[in-house]
């Protein structure tokens, strides 16, 4: 869509190719020569066709420091996911349904669409929150147990730990 320089395009293409190749290997679950050859060709064709439209980032995302942050993000995310599940279990199983739902909003410092998407998905999967809408940089969150309606406080409560890391990655 947007105008890209050649090196930018190339870098996106290679990144896309790389990821699709990983996906292909996971699909086939095999490292035999024929599968790899066909996989290289197929993924190359697909990433060539989708070069300007479907890629998110350049190769710069693969720098070591960012990968470390990504792994750290996964750890944080998984802890939150498991917490949230026990939270749900507690609420569902307790006979009185201890819920106090409501909708809060906060603003984020993230700029790119992809980072917002990752943040929104993480929020949806973490304790008691569900992203209802994202308009520009404002997140509208359905909160199962509203502790505060002040945007700043809600932000610290819900999203700060994720956003810190996401700012480093993107």
């Amino acid at each position: 869509m947007e105008n890209l320089t050649l090196s930018d395009k190339l870098s996106r293409f290679i990144l896309n190719w790389f990821f699709l190749m990983i996906v292909w290997i996971a699909f086939t679950s095999s490292f035999s020569g024929q599968e790899l050859i066909v996989g290289v060709i197929t993924t190359m064709v697909i990433s060539l066709l989708s070069i300007s439209m479907f890629t998110c980032c350049t190769l710069a995302i693969l720098s070591p420091i960012r990968i470390v942050y990504m792994l750290w993000y996964f750890v944080v995310f998984f802890v939150a996911l498991i917490q949230s599940n026990f939270d749900v279990a507690r609420r569902v199983l307790s006979p009185s349904l201890p819920i106090n739902p409501g909708i809060v909003k906060f603003k984020t410092k993230l700029t790119t669409n992809y980072s917002k998407m990752v943040l929104a998905n993480s929020i949806t999967l973490t304790p008691g929150t569900l992203t209802v809408d994202v308009i520009d940089d404002t997140f509208y969150i359905h909160w199962i147990d509203v502790k505060t309606t002040d945007p700043e406080k809600a932000f610290t409560e819900i999203a700060e730990s994720f956003e810190k890391i996401l700012l480093k990655i993107f």
Binding site: L81, A89, R91, V92, L125, L130, V132
Partner: peptide
Amino acid sequence: YNRLQAGTKATT
């Protein structure tokens, strides 16, 4: 919304 909350997290 609450159903979505429970549904999404737990089933995921």
